[in-house]
Nucleic acid binder design. Structure first.
Lengths: 230, 230
DNA sequence: ATTACTATTCTACGAGTAT
DNA sequence: TATACTCGTAGAATAGTAA
């Protein structure tokens, strides 16, 4: 989150007053009363929001004209998008949480095969980074949710045969990692991992992109069908 | 707001992990890392959310099973509704802010006339409290916005004639006061107030319901048409 | 009237640690 | 391992004012 709680709520209050559509005139006393803080703190909040570029400010003799900037609207929309998907797309989404661990890279092996790579780009919309992020599921509910994914069609990446051997089908689901990065869950049919493991692919190296280390918890939003993916 | 900033963001994090759909297993260390606070503070946050009824909690040897309650979802939905109306209904809404003052109660006089009362109930969906809340608009933008309301059709309450005199038409707009209470803006056609005054009616006494005193600022969301009113 | 500085109070964070 | 207590302290909030 770019904006800590109290500051975000100050921004929300400006938003409620229509500050995203036009300049609004507010006094720090009124503003403070509206969100339950003192005049002085209200002053500091508005100052800080302006300093950090979330609002523009213009002092007048009887208050200040405040308006939310593009950046401010972005901060609001970020929360909005999270809430919308969670509240309205429930039927199409499964939430999973797991902890990062270092695996044997079997997924990485698959992901680099040319016979798969082109299909990934075409069917998932991105060329996967040549490596997977391994997650270990820890709660019964997560493991159950993973089992339910097995039963769903998902997005199928077709197997193929080359001179050496035959490669089986791979099933994927589009997913959002930590509510921030788009990627996909890889369900390799014959894997030696158990039912408590999930492999994630993404356009980037997720460990670097999200600053993940072994043991860190990661949240996944798995899209069961393509509808409503955002 | 029922929930102060930091606590709300803790709830949001649980939401992001799917805690509104099922119990999720989280450790206080992981949870803290995810929102940038210490293990101890994370523990306190979860404890307080549970104490205040926003989540249920169940301790296990390796973490706690947390799930958002109805009340918690309500707190999230409250913000969601605000954001949705602000971001998606912009064309249908005008935001106005004004300060409460004690007026001469002309609106109250109108609002109690039987010839109007029935129409209010029928066309606005509520029987108005016999009194109005007077707001004084302070910024040029607010006064301009009020003038724009004059030009719109709104909801017309027809005038009538009784043995004493003739009563003119009254125009209304549905509105939300302080993002919390449903009411309506009353545009009495011939009033001795100037262009910087607005009268609000609602099912309840707004001063009591919202704890308003003279001079307090009030925010209004005026719905220009009935579509998308929430 | 305002906003916002300085001084002071006090809340709330995290370190250390018990369970 | 967990969670969550106590406690010292940093930083935030308010009081008092200046501008």
């Amino acid at each position: 989150m770019e904006l800590e709680g109290d500051l975000w709520f100050a921004l929300l209050q400006i938003f409620r007053m229509g500050g995203h559509t036009r300049q609004i005139l507010i006094g720090t006393s009124d503003f403070g009363r509206m969100i339950g803080i003192s005049q002085q703190t209200a002053s500091r909040r508005l100052l800080e929001l302006a300093e950090r570029g979330f609002v523009t400010r213009e002092l007048t003799p009887d208050g200040q004209l405040v308006m939310i900037t593009e950046k401010g609207i972005g901060a609001i929309r970020e929360v909005y998008d999270t809430l919308r998907m969670g509240l309205e797309g429930v039927d199409n989404v499964k939430f999973l949480n797991g902890n990062v661990f270092s695996g044997f890279g079997e997924g990485a092996y698959y992901v680099t095969k040319n016979g798969y790579r082109e299909q990934f780009s075409e069917k998932l919309g991105f060329a996967p980074f040549p490596g997977t992020l391994n997650l270990r599921l820890r709660s019964a509910a997560d493991i159950r949710a993973r089992a339910e994914l097995e039963a769903l069609p998902g997005i199928t990446i077709k197997g193929f045969t080359n001179s050496e051997r035959t490669y089986g089908d791979v099933k994927c689901f589009l997913a959002k990692v930590n509510d921030a990065v788009d990627g996909a869950v890889l369900m390799i049919h014959r894997t030696h991992y158990g039912k408590e493991v999930l492999e994630i692919i993404a356009p980037d190296n997720l460990r670097k992109r999200l600053g993940l280390r072994d043991g860190d918890m990661v949240q996944l939003k798995v899209y069961l069908s393509r509808d409503h993916v955002q």
